[in-house]
Amino acid sequence: MTNHGPVLPLWLCETCDRPWPCATRRTELLGECERISLAYYMNLCLISAGQDMSWAPADVLRRRFIGWLP
């Protein structure tokens, strides 16, 4: 179990206080999930984050949540 979960509604990492998913959590997710499952999960997070942070530009959120996926 990770200590790098999101703190809502700002989607900050609970451990390192960086935008979630932080670098540590990204590495963990890549090791834990199959590619399609991870893409699905991160898209769900993107939708939730978009609702929570409606003030954030959509392209910034897209890069943050799914732009790093292989």
Rank of each mutant, 00 (worst) to 15 (best):
residue 13 C to M: 02
residue 34 E to T: 12
residue 5 G to V: 07
residue 39 A to M: 06
residue 65 F to D: 01
residue 59 D to E: 12
residue 37 S to F: 09
residue 66 I to V: 15
residue 44 L to V: 11
residue 5 G to S: 07
residue 6 P to S: 08
residue 29 L to A: 11
residue 39 A to V: 05
residue 56 A to M: 11
residue 26 R to W: 04
residue 20 W to D: 06
residue 50 G to S: 15
residue 45 C to L: 09
residue 11 W to K: 01
residue 61 L to C: 02
residue 62 R to H: 03
residue 36 I to V: 13
residue 52 D to M: 03
residue 14 E to W: 09
residue 57 P to S: 06
residue 22 C to Q: 06
residue 15 T to S: 07
residue 59 D to L: 08
residue 40 Y to C: 09
residue 30 L to A: 14
residue 19 P to E: 14
residue 50 G to P: 02
residue 31 G to K: 01
residue 40 Y to E: 12
residue 11 W to H: 07
residue 58 A to W: 02
residue 33 C to G: 03
residue 35 R to V: 12
residue 66 I to W: 01
residue 50 G to E: 03
residue 46 L to N: 00
residue 14 E to V: 11
residue 39 A to F: 03
residue 46 L to S: 00
residue 17 D to K: 13
residue 63 R to K: 13
residue 23 A to N: 13
residue 37 S to L: 12
residue 47 I to Y: 13
residue 16 C to Q: 09
residue 14 E to N: 10
residue 15 T to V: 04
residue 60 V to G: 04
residue 20 W to N: 01
residue 10 L to F: 12
residue 18 R to T: 05
residue 68 W to Q: 04
residue 65 F to Y: 05
residue 47 I to T: 14
residue 56 A to R: 10
residue 39 A to Q: 00
residue 17 D to R: 15
residue 32 E to C: 12
residue 39 A to E: 07
residue 10 L to Q: 15
residue 15 T to M: 01
residue 45 C to M: 13
residue 25 R to D: 05
residue 10 L to Y: 11
residue 42 M to A: 00
residue 40 Y to W: 10
residue 32 E to I: 07
residue 1 M to W: 06
residue 48 S to H: 13
residue 13 C to V: 07
residue 54 S to W: 08
residue 6 P to I: 04
residue 47 I to K: 14
residue 45 C to Y: 02
residue 43 N to H: 13
residue 35 R to N: 04
residue 21 P to D: 04
residue 43 N to W: 02
residue 47 I to A: 15
residue 1 M to L: 09
residue 54 S to M: 12
residue 44 L to I: 10
residue 56 A to D: 01
residue 27 T to G: 13
residue 24 T to K: 10
residue 40 Y to S: 09
residue 19 P to L: 14
residue 12 L to E: 04
residue 20 W to K: 06
residue 57 P to T: 01
residue 24 T to L: 09
residue 22 C to I: 06
residue 57 P to H: 05
residue 49 A to Y: 04
residue 53 M to R: 15
residue 3 N to Y: 09
residue 20 W to E: 01
residue 38 L to H: 03
residue 35 R to G: 04
residue 11 W to M: 08
